[in-house]
């Protein structure tokens, strides 16, 4: 997705697998994403019923803000693109260990649907064990102890003391 960019000023980090790219590229990507977001809100905003007979209706604010955000995102995008083809500014975005981060995101994203279908305890057990593994806690016994400890904590503090039912 992003180009590796060798710069003399790059920090030599502990791992070689770090994903590093110029901030300009990051700006362009973020600008494009936010622009798409703003455009979506602007377009969908047209469907909001703006009746009611008053000058400022339900769609005025969202569409106005979407317009401003769109302009801001466009500036960010344009700025990024212009500088991308210019001389490098030396500002870099570094994502350390991108695979670990993506694994973490995946686990978090899977949590809500899993909890809906499997219930709290199995989901949390698997999630915590997997996340600990991703975060470099590799001793099975430790993982087991932490997971068991946390589930016990949920049971005692949340379900029993605070009486919040966990599905």
């Amino acid at each position: 997705m992003a180009t590796q960019h060798d710069e003399p000023t790059v920090d030599i980090s502990a791992e070689h697998k770090d994903l590093t790219f110029r901030l300009e590229l990051g700006d362009a990507l973020a600008g494009a994403a936010l622009l798409a977001f703003a455009v979506t809100f602007w377009v969908l905003g047209a469907d909001i019923d703006d009746g009611g007979g008053y000058g400022v209706g339900a769609a005025t604010f969202p569409r106005g803000i979407a317009l401003l955000l769109g302009i801001g995102a466009l500036v960010l995008l344009a700025n990024g693109l212009v500088h991308l083809f210019g001389p490098p500014s030396g500002h870099l975005v570094t994502i350390g260990r991108p695979l670990h981060v993506i694994a973490g995101m995946g686990l978090m994203l899977a949590f809500a649907p899993a909890m809906r279908h499997l219930g709290y305890y199995p989901t949390m057990g698997v999630f915590l064990a997997a996340l600990l593994w991703v975060a470099d806690c590799r001793r099975p016994l430790h993982i087991l102890a932490y997971v068991a400890g946390f589930l016990l904590f949920s049971k005692i503090v949340f379900e029993m003391i605070l009486s919040i039912p966990l599905p």
Binding site: M108, M124, L128, L131, A135, D136, C137, Y146, F150
Partner: peptide
């Protein structure tokens, strides 16, 4: 840090749920 990471994530997800069930 590895343990903190796991426990923070777990506590946050649990806490978020219990705020509104």
């Amino acid at each position: 840090a590895s343990v903190v990471t796991g426990i923070v994530a777990a506590t946050c997800l649990l806490g978020t749920y219990s705020e509104s069930n």
